[in-house]
């Protein structure tokens, strides 16, 4: 499949898939403010886990520093969704994964996968519901999981556990951010 066609297909698929959460968001908002009772029930199938891992690694790929998979981000995402998010987000996430399944995400080549994600990113911005869209969820959890993991944090930033002083300084060229 040519890249352009893939994107077109994705657009059709996603267009459909993404209108659903928007519509449902209103009803879900009610639930979101109540304590969650079925959080425990949230889990991913093996295929879904593979899609999550693929996307996380595309967001934070292994370069000269570790990537999302190296530091356990995929499992982190699933755990976080289960423990810290409620039904509307769970549904939004599963629906997102369903659309990825429909476009056979795992079978696409890297360029095509990136194309899908770019499209997803733009589409997500159009969603006005209060439920966080799939792309935003997977992106925020990937970044959180990666940049606060030991390997991810130490590879990315200058880790200062105990600064010992407070100083106004001038940034050196290419200086990494401090993490505490």
């Amino acid at each position: 499949m040519k890249r352009r066609e893939v994107i077109k297909n994705v657009a059709l698929m996603l267009g459909g898939a993404f209108s659903a959460p928007t519509l449902m968001a209103m009803d879900n908002w009610e639930n979101a403010t109540k304590p969650n009772t079925n959080g425990i029930a949230f889990s991913l199938t093996e295929t879904q886990q593979r899609i999550v891992a693929e996307i996380a690694e595309l967001i934070i790929p292994k370069t000269d520093t570790p990537g999302a998979k190296d530091v356990g981000v995929p499992a982190f995402i699933e755990m976080m969704l289960k423990d810290c998010y409620k039904t509307p987000e769970h549904q939004s996430f599963i629906e997102g994964l369903d659309s990825m399944g429909k476009v056979k995400f795992l079978e696409l080549n890297t360029d095509e996968k990136r194309g899908v994600l770019k499209f997803l990113e733009q589409e997500s911005k159009k969603i006005t519901s209060k439920t966080t869209p799939f792309w935003r969820l997977i992106k925020e959890l990937t970044l959180l999981g990666y940049f606060t993991s030991e390997a991810g944090l130490k590879a990315s930033f200058e880790y200062v556990q105990i600064p010992g002083k407070l100083e106004l300084i001038k940034l050196k060229p290419n200086q990494k951010a401090y993490a505490y």
């Binding site: 967001i59 934070i60 370069t63 290419n174 990494k176 951010a177 401090y178």
Partner: peptide
Amino acid sequence: FGADFKQGLTKP
């Protein structure tokens, strides 16, 4: 997202 994005976020 991707390599450049990842690299960019290491800066303040």
